[in-house]
């Protein structure tokens, strides 16, 4: 694998200082009583790609209508059970550390988000995506695509088998590396609960350096993106287990499903 020439770019120290300034400002705002949002601000300069891609106008407050308080009727017919196992999609087994990842999708009142679609995508154990624009000079794995889909159960649970993805470099600044993560897409019971996010692994030394993870100013909110090692999920002689629960808060639904809605 040819090693690319080092790219010029700003240093990690410059990015670190900008992240610290953002966090100081958020903490000062919180100290004076402002709410601490869970979501990252869209205008977050340490993540350079936000510069021309964040709105400058304040968002306009809208009352959700009925259509926004329901979600598409995903169902088990949409997804095959094998799609939840990313290690069986090819003739051979992928390289890497086999893991089982499970958790529940809940709403802000603790109710399970049932029968909803969960989609994931990730790099392989070497930190390489199958995506054609990924230029990280790390090997592709012919036995790993890195895409999975599931439908949540009646208790809001999901469960998947995959391999632990590797960290990978990106070009935000010089020597920029993303902590290992799995991309997740969720639908709530209301469309306003739609969420795309990333799940991380505990103890990653890259957390402090990553402007995407650090775009969330509240440490406790950042912690909510980190899975927990769970020995009860680990399976002997087979795979390590992680648990990650997800909460999709949203406006309360007042719309009642018609009697014949479940005509699967």
């Amino acid at each position: 694998m040819p090693r690319p020439a080092p790219q010029p770019g700003e240093s990690q120290q410059v990015i670190d200082a900008e992240i610290a300034a953002h966090h100081r400002a958020a903490h000062a705002a919180a100290a004076s009583g402002a709410p601490v949002p869970a979501h990252p601000p869209r205008d977050f300069a340490p993540y350079r790609s936000t510069r021309l891609r964040h709105p400058t106008h304040e968002l306009v407050r809208a009352d959700p209508e009925e259509i926004e308080l329901v979600s598409p009727a995903f169902g088990h017919t949409d997804v095959a059970a094998e799609e939840a196992d990313l290690t069986i999609q090819h003739a051979g087994e992928p390289l890497g550390e086999r893991i089982i990842l499970t958790g529940r999708v809940l709403d802000g009142d603790g109710r399970p988000v049932r029968n909803q679609l969960v989609e994931i995508w990730q790099a392989n154990a070497s930190g390489r995506y199958v995506h054609k624009r990924d230029q990280h000079p790390a090997p592709l794995d012919p036995n790993f695509t890195g895409v999975g889909r599931m439908i949540t159960g009646d208790d809001g649970s999901y469960r998947l088998t995959t391999i632990k993805p590797g960290a990978y470099p990106w070009k935000n600044h010089r020597n920029a590396w993303r902590p290992a993560h799995i991309h997740f897409s969720f639908f709530g019971s209301a469309f306003t609960q739609r969420l795309i996010t990333q799940m991380y692994f505990p103890g990653d030394p890259l957390f402090a350096l990553d402007p995407i993870y650090q775009s969330i100013s509240d440490q406790r909110a950042r912690d909510r993106l980190v899975a927990t090692y769970d020995h009860d999920v680990s399976e002997p002689e087979w795979a390590l287990g992680y648990r990650w629960d997800v909460v999709l808060t949203g406006p309360k639904s007042t719309w009642m499903e018609p009697e014949d809605a479940d005509h699967a």
Binding site: A38, H39, P40, Y47, S49, L106, G108, D109, G110, E119, I120, W121, A123, Y129, V130, H131, K132, R133, D134, T145, G146, V147, H183, S185, L195, I196, T197, Q198, I212, Y213, S215, I216, R220, A221, R222, R224, L225, D245, V246, V247, L248, T249
Partner: peptide
Amino acid sequence: PDEALLQTPAQTVGPFFGYAL
């Protein structure tokens, strides 16, 4: 609020969703 029931933060979809979503 119950720490277990706080909103999960969003993160960018990133550049590499094209073979997944």
